[in-house]
Amino acid sequence: MTSASQSPAVVISTYRSLAKLVSRLPEKQRTGAWNQLREGFRRHADETSPEKIAQLIHEAGEKIAFLRIVTPKPMPGKNNTQSGITRWVYRSSGEKDAGGHGTKRKTGMVVSNFDGNNLDPCSVTRHNHQLKRMGFVNNLHAKGLF
């Protein structure tokens, strides 16, 4: 149970945690979740009983735990806020693409000059270095005397 002096800070922290999780929900679920979050906190705004506040914070904590499971994780290194920035990609024909899909590379086989008939010199050098590092200096033990 939290004391009366801590409950406003705990309530605000709980609201912020729920708001952050609701903002990561898919667009279809987000508006209903925002309304439910606001109405739930406004409905109990005049609550003064410490036991009731502790019970409501516990219920909110259970919702936070559920939303952490359900909501997608934010992408690391990406701007996770809705900043309203649009990326425009200009194609060679002069038209612009708002989706930003014009910079995707073609996926396919990697073209290399080295196949089964000729070896990559860098790979051969690395292989020989690793053999020496592991102690395989020569193969006289496998050849025998002749």
Rank of each mutant, 00 (worst) to 15 (best):
K104Y: 08
F114M: 03
E62C: 08
T71Q: 12
G84T: 02
H58M: 09
Q82M: 07
A33V: 02
E47P: 00
T86C: 01
S7M: 15
F146G: 13
N113Q: 07
A19F: 04
V89C: 08
A4Y: 04
H127K: 11
R30A: 06
W34P: 00
I85Y: 02
G99F: 03
K28D: 08
Q82F: 06
T125E: 12
A60R: 01
V22A: 00
V89D: 11
I69W: 02
S3T: 15
Y90R: 07
N128Q: 12
T103G: 10
V110K: 15
N128Y: 09
K73D: 10
I64T: 08
S13D: 15
H58F: 10
F136L: 13
N128H: 12
K28L: 06
R43D: 08
D46K: 14
W88F: 15
T81L: 11
G102H: 04
S93M: 04
W88I: 12
S3Q: 12
P74E: 10
F146H: 09
V70L: 08
A9D: 14
L140T: 05
A33S: 12
H141F: 09
V89T: 12
F136N: 05
N79W: 00
A9F: 08
D46R: 15
Q130A: 10
N35S: 11
D46G: 01
I57R: 11
P72D: 14
Q36W: 09
N117L: 11
V22L: 01
W34G: 00
R105Q: 13
E59N: 15
H44M: 06
P121H: 09
E27F: 01
D46H: 11
S123N: 11
P121Y: 06
S13N: 15
T107L: 05
M1P: 15
A19P: 00
V111I: 14
N138I: 03
M109W: 06
I69V: 14
R38H: 11
H127G: 03
T2M: 05
K73Q: 12
R16L: 11
K132H: 10
T48G: 08
M134A: 13
G32D: 07
P26N: 13
S13L: 07
V89H: 03
T48V: 14
A142Q: 13
D46C: 00
L25N: 01
L25M: 15
